[in-house]
Simulated assay, not measured.
Amino acid sequence: MTEVGKATLADGKRIAEIQIAGWKEGYRRILPDDFLDGLNPESRVPVWERFIRDKKGVMLVARSGSELTGFCHLISSRDEDGNGVAEIAAIYIDPDRWRSGCGKLLFAAAVASAVQQGFTAMTLWVLAENSRGRGFYEAMGMRADGAGKTVERPGCTLHEVRYRMELSR
């Protein structure tokens, strides 16, 4: 049985591993192989540990028994038009657990947390070509709201679209 709770500092390494595994599996035909092959979980551990330690937003994790299977980082929106809006900054599931219901549990926990914190809406940014991710967000009730952005990364350019859902209290 999978349960969702808050991350601890000890989860930082596993969160980084899941993020990088998710990128390598999910974005293989979207982003250049050289970029994906160069990703290293060890370089991401300090980032996730800082978010957990600083309590920047809420870091939720899904566990199946003692195994951490996914995570979701919920923050206040970073967008200029994001006053009163929560943002899912990251949500990743171990690729071996895709389609297991873990993502739905994490997403539902993020919505509940956003509502509890008084947010009126929730957004996230997703790669425009990520049809698997977009399908998941649409199944969860989110819709593309027309906003887009381009992010430069070493070796590639990311084109992202924003998804949004209104939250009821």
Rank of each mutant, 00 (worst) to 15 (best):
I93Q: 03
D33C: 09
A7C: 01
I20A: 02
V58K: 06
R63D: 00
Q19I: 12
M165G: 10
G82W: 01
E25H: 13
Q19D: 15
Q19F: 15
K24E: 09
T8S: 14
E17D: 09
V47R: 13
K104P: 07
M140S: 08
A21I: 08
R134N: 08
I91N: 03
S100N: 03
F51I: 13
K55T: 10
E87M: 02
G118H: 02
R14K: 14
A121S: 14
T120P: 06
Y163W: 05
Y92N: 03
G148I: 11
G22M: 06
V4L: 05
M59H: 04
V161K: 03
E138N: 11
R63H: 01
A128Y: 13
I75N: 02
A139Y: 05
A110K: 04
H159E: 15
M1I: 08
L106C: 00
G65N: 04
R29K: 14
F107M: 12
A89H: 11
C102A: 13
L127K: 10
R44H: 14
L106H: 00
Y27P: 04
L127G: 11
E3M: 12
P95T: 07
E67N: 10
R14E: 11
L158V: 07
G146I: 09
E160M: 05
A110N: 04
G22D: 05
L39C: 03
S76V: 11
I91H: 02
D37G: 14
E87W: 01
R50E: 15
R44G: 07
G84Q: 02
F35E: 08
E160W: 01
P154K: 05
D11F: 00
A62C: 00
R99Y: 09
P154D: 08
G38C: 06
V45H: 00
E67C: 09
G5K: 05
G38A: 09
H73E: 00
E87R: 02
V111L: 12
M140R: 05
M165D: 09
K55Y: 06
R162P: 01
G118A: 02
R44L: 10
R143Q: 12
L124K: 01
D37I: 08
G82L: 02
W125Q: 02
A114P: 01
L60R: 00
F119T: 08
N83Y: 10
K56N: 13
T120G: 13
K56G: 09
G65K: 03
T2W: 08
T157G: 08
Y163I: 04
E49P: 00
C72V: 03
P95V: 07
L158A: 05
G5H: 06
G26H: 06
S131E: 15
V111R: 15
A139Q: 09
A89D: 10
R97F: 12
K104Y: 10
D96T: 14
R153P: 06
P32N: 06
V58I: 12
S131A: 15
F35A: 09
V85E: 07
D79V: 07
V85F: 03
S100Q: 01
R28M: 09
G103N: 04
R97K: 14
R132T: 12
